[in-house]
């Protein structure tokens, strides 16, 4: 495949990925009449009202802050708890390794709907309903399987020789993990970190049921723009568009190791 074909395909895929968002952005600059106009309008008199509306809406800011706290917290604690488990599963052959790994995976398989009420009761008794930490715990639990399994995959790709050499040099297990394995797995951590952040940022059902008025993340809050018998297109699209900015910023930050991974790879 030559360079030109490759680029055409890559940009075509970019258009496909972007088009629905273009339509959303487009809608966010429209009056409610234009949003539904027939035929759909590509060129129109843009208005900023929807954005002014959303920016001056304190609730939307609160959704944003809550989402940010929960998603950052989930990513941090998820990686903190998940990476050590992944490392063990990848590097140590102990009895029950496979079963333990599968058990972790199975926590993702249960459809949440049947579990919602017991889950809610548990949180009610513990008194962590409608708290950031409560939702972070739930989100870490929901995403731990993916963190552990993906990170295990990344560790398995790293040749063991360096770590083994480190043991020979007299380093402890923990030092080896911390000083050698962890830095080598940065591209993996970056990809998994982005995924965890996005999963938590956009999680709906648990955020709805376990959160309330204190903690209301943006997926739950934005659903409020879907009114009874009508949809507030302007506010919905404007706030969704604005909420992309912090996510892109986060993704951008976490992307660096993905690119650096190449140079790290050649070091091996």
């Amino acid at each position: 495949m030559n360079k030109l074909t490759r680029r055409i395909i890559l940009y075509a895929f970019a258009i496909w990925s972007f088009f629905p968002l273009y339509w959303l952005l487009n809608t966010s600059f429209k009056t409610s009449k234009d949003a539904l106009a027939r035929p759909p309008t590509f060129i129109f008199k843009p208005i900023l009202d929807n954005y002014l509306d959303v920016i001056s809406n304190n609730e939307v800011w609160n959704y944003f802050v809550d989402s940010l706290i929960v998603a950052m917290g989930t990513t941090f604690f998820g990686l903190l708890i998940g990476i050590p488990a992944a490392y063990i599963l990848a590097r140590f052959n102990f009895k029950g390794n496979a079963d333990y790994g599968f058990w972790i995976l199975s926590t993702r398989m249960t459809p949440p709907i049947a579990m919602l009420i017991p889950f809610f009761i548990m949180y009610l008794k513990l008194g962590i309903l409608d708290t950031h930490i409560g939702l972070i715990i739930a989100h870490v639990g929901l995403n731990l399987s993916i963190i552990v399994w993906l990170m295990r995959g990344f560790y398995e790709e790293i040749p063991m020789e360096i770590e083994e050499a480190s043991y020979v040099d007299g380093s402890s297990y923990f030092q080896t993990f911390y000083k050698i394995a962890l830095p080598l797995s940065l591209p993996g951590i970056s990809a998994v970190g982005i995924i965890t952040f996005l999963f938590s940022w956009n999680e709906f059902l648990f955020a709805l049921v376990l959160g309330d008025s204190v903690v209301r993340t943006s997926p739950v809050g934005l659903y409020g723009f879907v009114g009874y018998q009508k949809i507030y297109w302007g506010q919905l699209s404007a706030s969704a568009s604005l909420l992309l900015i912090p996510v892109l910023f986060f993704v951008f930050l976490f992307q660096k190791p993905l690119i650096k991974g190449l140079t790290l790879g050649s070091f091996k």
Binding site: L205, L208, Y223, V226
Partner: peptide
């Protein structure tokens, strides 16, 4: 809340 959220929560 929106109707869908309300009847679920």
């Amino acid at each position: 809340q929106s109707e869908s959220e309300y009847v679920a929560e």
